[in-house]
């Protein structure tokens, strides 16, 4: 009997210690996440600007995003820009998987060198990278004028500036995509390729019928993270485009209206919509993933 009570009091103590050990992350979560998202939600229904008395305005901020003379245009531009910039994602994935195939081949030497080299941009600071590429894309004195001439205004044409950001983004993300595909390829059993050999499959057939289907978990992961990060891009608008309307993204819109112009209500409504979209994408992707993602 005594043993049992000792044990249960030990368990009680362990439970208490266990809760204590997770207390700080939980408090941090309440302070910085729960409080903030609720406050953003509340602010989105107010006219709060840090000066005037706070007043509830119902869904006005939300409707302003879609109907207000001035805000409507800026908001829609930012949405379309953000979506346009997502084009870089599939391009990067195609290049990444091809590159990984090359580096996975047994006959290629110096793999480690190429891997280390290609991945470096992924860990470089966004500011430095944007500064370099902005200089490269300058039509007057950048490197691109030797390829495309001075009359191609990469940094001020609303389409070309997005193309430039996509090119920069593919260069930036290629190493990471390649590494993930490479890790995925190394997990594929060699016996599958041997079986394909016996069936007389060519290298190209093996790539499309063995490698690619088995890499769907990686593709899926890249898709989800790419979408979530892409929808939240900011540094490109701020540093590469220096706020040019042709490359203002949703988060730039939120920053400009919220932090810069102190229109907290309006900016909050945009950020609530963004959060809803991000969460819906996450849920949908995970729900439907098992239909086409290979699992062993």
């Amino acid at each position: 009997m005594e043993k049992v009570t000792v044990k249960s009091s030990l368990f009680k103590k362990e439970k208490l210690v266990a809760i204590l050990f997770i207390a700080l992350p939980l408090i941090g979560f309440l302070l910085f996440t729960v409080f903030s998202i609720i406050a953003t939600g509340v602010l989105s229904f107010t006219n709060y600007d840090g000066i005037r008395d706070i007043k509830f305005v119902g869904f006005k901020n939300y409707s302003d995003l879609f109907t207000h003379q001035i805000f409507k245009k800026a908001f829609w531009t930012s949405v379309l820009n953000t979506l346009f910039l997502l084009i870089g994602m599939p391009i990067g994935m195609v290049f990444g998987v091809i590159l990984a195939t090359f580096l996975n081949s047994k006959k290629i030497k110096g793999k480690k060198f190429f891997r280390v080299l290609f991945y470096f941009p992924a860990i470089s600071g966004a500011v430095a990278i944007n500064i370099i590429w902005r200089y490269i894309f300058n039509n007057e004195y950048g490197v691109v004028r030797f390829l495309f001439g001075k009359d191609v205004y990469w940094l001020s044409n609303p389409i070309l500036i997005k193309v430039a950001i996509i090119i920069k983004g593919v260069w930036n993300g290629l190493g990471g995509t390649m590494l993930l595909y490479l890790a995925g390829m190394q997990g594929i059993a060699p016996s599958l390729y041997e079986a394909a050999d016996i069936d007389g499959a060519s290298d190209v057939q093996k790539f499309f019928h063995v490698t690619l289907p088995l890499l769907t978990p990686v593709t899926f992961y890249l898709l989800v993270t790419g979408l979530i990060n892409g929808l939240q891009s900011y540094a490109d608008s701020q540093v590469f485009a220096q706020g040019d309307p042709g490359a203002q993204t949703i988060v730039y819109f939120i920053w400009e209206r919220g932090i810069h112009q102190a229109r907290y209500g309006l900016a909050s409504s945009a950020s609530i919509l963004l959060s809803i979209v991000v969460m819906i994408i996450t849920v949908i992707n995970f729900k439907f993933s098992n239909r086409w993602v290979y699992e062993n």
Binding site: L26, F29, T33, I37, A39, T40, Q232, Y264, S275, V278
Partner: peptide, 23 residues
């Protein structure tokens, strides 16, 4: 429950948290 709670927080975009934090 606690683990899911903490992980769910990482799904929320920073842009949706920064305005109240800033104030």
């Amino acid at each position: 429950f606690f683990l899911l709670l903490l992980l769910s927080g990482t799904m929320i975009p920073y842009a949706a948290l920064m305005l109240p934090q800033f104030r």
